[in-house]
Nucleic acid binder design. Structure first.
Lengths: 173, 173
DNA sequence: CTAGAAAGGGTGACAATGTCAACTAGATTG
DNA sequence: CAATCTAGTTGACATTGTCACCCTTTCTAG
């Protein structure tokens, strides 16, 4: 039926509109709260990606270099380089795995812990300032919304490659 | 009263906890939907910041180079460089302002328009895929939440410097 | 048991990117 | 009209992350 077709088109174009609205909102929110909020450099001479790596190292005590690399979407040589820098700065430490002589277990140092805490505190202060006028109900709602988003986007939906098409950047072997 | 103090401390630590929860959620969401979702490179040989610049150029037809630079938080020489690249790639065009011989009005070309559209479509497809299992109510809720966040973070709250402390990167003159 | 493949990690060369400092040229102001 | 301001550009540079290739350790098939 023609009517069905027209309705279908209406529905589709309505959805498209909705997607685009969400898209704009997400982009802008990510701009304000994502890495750009760090101005490219966080503090204590850590770049944003170095910070991310350090957080991952802290989260999973004793992960291999490649694990860290995967978490921040670097090639393995890129991962080597970040760890190099973190180690040189005294925030992380390599140590050969006793179980497998090839892998390097990366561990965070106490200085590393304190620097991640410091950066997190900075960010929390920024957040508090930005969100100070919102009431608890709104904050609750925002947290719920973010949880929905994250649950939807999280890899556990693996099996299907769930990232944007990319012209460069190969992933791991 | 001691009880008041204890309550005060309770409230404060509760808020702190909440802020940290939101912080984690925001960071993770920004990770999934922000620039990193582009894998560093979007397509047609545009980096994420080049894409941002192009979007800004498209949004404000005829802005100066520094305007674009401010929008993406670059120094003016950085802005010059991005525009250089966009022009070389055929996505934007400089033209001296007739009103003021110093300023360069940057305009988007038709190829520029089509490339931004293409990238946006890619992103929309990604979003559709990720959010396909969410119902309309949830999507509505998410959009509302994002609007709250953006309204809170948007500069119009100017006057007070509202960005994270940064050890590097000076802003404009 | 051993040869060869596989896997973790590291390195040199390189390209991309964005900064600073200094410069040019057009606009403004006393 | 001289001094100053402002927009934009450029050279030199530091940072960053990639690729291609290498070494070393582990695994596996015959």
């Amino acid at each position: 039926m023609l009517v069905d077709l027209v309705n279908y088109i209406k529905v589709v174009s309505r959805m498209k509109e909705k997607t685009h609205e969400l898209l704009d909102l997400l982009q802008e929110a990510a701009w304000f709260f994502g890495n750009r909020a760090f101005d490219g450099y966080c503090c204590e001479g850590l770049s944003f990606m170095e910070y991310q790596a350090l957080v991952e190292i802290r989260r999973t005590e004793n992960s291999s270099i490649q694990d860290v690399g995967k978490a921040i979407k670097f090639t393995k040589s890129g991962a080597t380089r970040v760890i190099d820098r973190l180690e040189r700065k005294g925030y992380a430490r390599r140590q050969r795995s006793s179980a497998d002589g090839r892998v390097c277990c990366v561990a965070i140092t106490s200085r590393g812990k304190s620097v991640t805490s410091k950066i997190t505190e900075n960010y929390a202060a920024y957040l508090d300032d930005v969100l100070k006028d919102l009431d608890v109900r709104s904050l609750e709602m925002i947290a719920d919304a973010l949880r929905f988003l994250i649950a939807a986007a999280r890899p556990p939906k693996v099996a299907s490659a769930k990232s944007l098409p990319s012209t460069r950047r190969r992933s791991f072997s």
